[in-house]
Design a protein around this nucleic acid. Structure first.
Lengths: 232, 232, 232, 232
DNA sequence: CATGAATGAGGCTTCATTCAT
DNA sequence: CATGAATGAAGCCTCATTCAT
């Protein structure tokens, strides 16, 4: 019903997109990926249809938020490459990463999982690993981390740190610092002994049918590759 | 007691119960707690109703599986208390824990989360923390772990290790050993510096209002305690 | 598994039937016809299958109980036919009826409803109406009830009295006496004015396909004939 | 408020809501509260989900219908308070009530039962009792009803009248008039004898623990308060 | 004969997504 | 463009009845 005059459709849309991203970011952060589109729309003060006008699916919306956060981390990491103290830079990068994880439930559920369907998110995670690798390499050369530690290790660790601290966070929001410190100690101290498993070369990010899976056999039972356990 | 009940004596029922537990264990392990009762029943080769004959709800079934796994770990930990080398005993306990986590997606989603509704599971986790504390205390006295590390730290860490390695496991099922080693190095090496956050006193396990819930924080709107981030 | 010797199968069965009838009577009385077979079996201390050995369906079991109660009322009514004071006899019959209704939730839900499928129950209700008619006729002749009141009226009224008092019974178990008195006053006092609707000739008891309904058209949408209400 | 909400403004939604209410009213009237949401949706020609868009649960839908009917009766009663002939006004009120009961199976199953969970429905029934009391009081002063008859008596009686006539209604839709007349005669004629039970003070409407529930009777095992009969 | 295990249809409810207004 | 109404698949759970032990 037209409504308040011949509204400036363009700027309205821009504003709505902003409202939507903010609302979705907050809701995903608080409630995780399971939050319903309806709740996000309500928080944004728009209709549910508007969500789908701006984002073709819930996954796209989620991806947009995640890309924003990943972008921030990539920027942070990039800036830290210019720091003098490589060890401190790495520590700051890891701190920034854990803070992001700790703040955002959906980020935890999305990043570092092999079930990532979204190409751009995979790409951004890949870049994050590269940034982490660059920072780690500098720290390695400086002797600030033990040999064999890679950027992927670092990215995986920050995700794990959040998970470690998770049960405590409601009562003690800063508890993650304890486990970050432990992890940094773990990758810093050179015990002389080699780690029992070679460093990961790359982060395997699931693809629905890319290289290996022939399109004719799309894994009908389909599921994120996980779990073994032989029948007992 | 509820649901799990005593013995069903009849041989076919026992067999079906076994089939059911195995199927549920496998499905929960592979697909996590979200797997549907229908799929479990199908895998077990029984009707949906049969699941509910043996377990009064999906939660009871899940709890039965989780209690089994937690029981195994508790037994393992208990046995290791008799070992000579306390440091090695702790390592073996942590290894056993991570192996369980790594094998079982639902275990990861259930244990160490603050949203545990099931009293017996909470109790078993509590016992796991006590076993971990006993093992850790011995290792601490022996100097095998740095001061201030507690059993709860250990339990939280093994959960985090699984999470850290998770993206690699499909391609490299033993990758968790790398991160377990890092974590053990982290809690072993005494850097002299104190950790930035005091050790956790207890694992906060959600309760609907039972014993511990302070009357001042009734959380009426109810939600898994999680997430910060004020509205932007 | 034979068990405790070569049990006297005959007397066992008799005993079980008794246990079952008592348990079913109590459960139907307390919880109404919706009570589950499982609960009845449990209360009787027998297996669910035993219920179906003795009664081919839940309806048969229900009918057996109802027939017992109806039989008692018929006997009571029959005995009262020999009483001197016909008015008092009728009052006593009605009192006995209401007491039965008030004691038994399933009796209320079953008797006097047009949805009675069970031939023997229909027959017993029919007999109850005849007994009521005999008592009423005597009272009418004696001038103890106004003209035009029939046995069917009486049977319908006692059912209605229970229903009237129902909401009060939990708090005041004897409240039905108030409404029984009102009803008796209603059928006793001759106002001189004729009642606005002719006395019912017979109690229409539903049949699933007896006389009218051709077996080829078994009322597929099937439902107790009830309710009109044109679209408003 | 809940569920029913304000206006839906959009014309198709309004139309569907209307269709839904009509369909639900008809189905509840015909088949009682046990009718399934699926059947209601089908009758309305909408999807099952649409029902839940308009009403947050089956209970809310039922309550909406019941509140409508109770509202009509309350309005009718209120208007009759202005009538000259208080006795006639009461008769007309009772007639309107019975007509509503007789038309609607769910209304019978809902109103006057102690198992009412819905606060607004309880409230509306309470108001109905007040209206009935006002009408009855006027009739009492006028000598049109015998002493001691209350509004609650009247409300209970109309419910009982429906129940009395129920078995006849399919064959003789107006048969209730006979029993209404009897009931009116019962409460009109002053026999001089006091009724055997004191008039009900209030209609006990089940509450989960709200206002009136005496702390001494918390009914922990929970069950619709009903049934006596000790275990045999 | 008795048991209680298994079945499976059917009920309520949620939610991503589509589409008429 | 925005809206929010409609959809329908899917999930959990109950229970009368059948049947292997």
């Amino acid at each position: 019903m037209a409504g308040t005059s011949a509204a400036s459709s363009r700027s309205d849309a821009v504003r709505n997109r902003r409202l939507l991203l903010d609302a979705a970011a907050a809701m995903f952060a608080e409630h995780g990926v399971e939050v319903s589109i309806g709740e996000i729309a309500q928080r944004a003060g728009v209709g549910k249809g508007t969500v789908f006008r701006h984002f073709s699916s819930k996954d796209e919306l989620l991806a947009a938020i995640m890309l924003g956060l990943l972008g921030e981390l990539n920027d942070t990491g990039g800036a830290l490459l210019a720091a003098d103290d490589a060890g401190l830079a790495l520590r700051r990068f890891m701190t920034a990463c854990v803070e992001t994880f700790v703040r955002d439930r959906a980020f935890c559920e999305t990043v570092g999982r092999p079930s990532l369907q979204h190409a751009q998110v995979r790409e951004a995670i890949h870049r994050l690993c590269e940034v982490a690798e660059a920072l780690t390499a500098r720290a390695r050369q400086e002797g600030a981390v033990r040999p064999g530690i890679t950027g992927i290790d670092v990215v995986l660790l920050v995700s794990g740190i959040q998970h470690t601290a998770e049960p405590l966070l409601a009562a003690e929001p800063e508890a993650w610092r304890r486990y970050l410190e432990l992890a940094i100690d773990g990758i810093t101290t050179d015990t002389g002994r080699a780690l029992p498993h070679p460093p990961p070369r790359h982060l395997p990010l699931a693809e629905t049918g890319a290289t290996a899976a022939s399109p004719g056999a799309p894994d009908p039972g389909g599921d994120p590759p996980r779990a073994r356990r032989p029948a007992p």
